[in-house]
Amino acid sequence: MFVTSAYAQTAPAAPNTPAAPAGEVHTETGVAHGGEHKGAFPPLDSTYFASQLLWLIISFGLFYLLMKKVIVPRVGGILEHRHDRIAQDLDEAARLKAEADAAVETYEKELAAARSKGHKIAETAREAAKTKAVADRAAIEAELTEKLAAAEVRIGEIKAKAFAEVGQIAEETATAIVDQLIGAKASGDDIKAAVAAAKTEA
């Protein structure tokens, strides 16, 4: 239906040719058809099959050769090169990352070492200060004990001396009291003994 309607479109074109009778137009198209494709449907017309085959073989053959010899190896090479390059870059990146990781590890190790070293130093210093303080305290305490002992000794001496003097005073006082009370002189030895007894009692 399309074909017939489209053929119909050719009809209005015919009157444009000056004073051409319908018959002449028909012969013209007839000649054209006869010369070109003998009225056959052109894609199925065998007139030019040999020519088409020959030129297809020539052109497609050349195309195939060019593809096989130049284009395919070239594009394949480009893709392979890119693939290798990417793999290489990835390897390089992995290597650099490993290096960076190692550097971070070293840094952390060193940091930890420095920290522990600092700790140790602080510890030693604290320890030393502590020991020194202890030693100082001990020395001072010893000194103080010594001084205390010396003071006690002195106190003891003074006390003893005082006691001794107390005895003498007591004897004198007792002699005087006895003297006053009984009007007789007690013997020194008795008084001494009495005082000594009183002293031990006290």
């Binding site: 020519s51 088409q52 030129w55």
Partner: peptide
């Protein structure tokens, strides 16, 4: 009849376009 026809011309043009495109587009690599 092995005439060079318009069909032959377009076969050659097809090959020239496809091959030319592939050849020159990849020449930089």
């Amino acid at each position: 009849d092995f005439s060079f026809t318009n069909a032959s011309l377009f076969m050659v043009a097809t090959v020239a376009c496809a091959a030319g495109f592939l050849y020159f587009s990849t020449s930089q690599r």
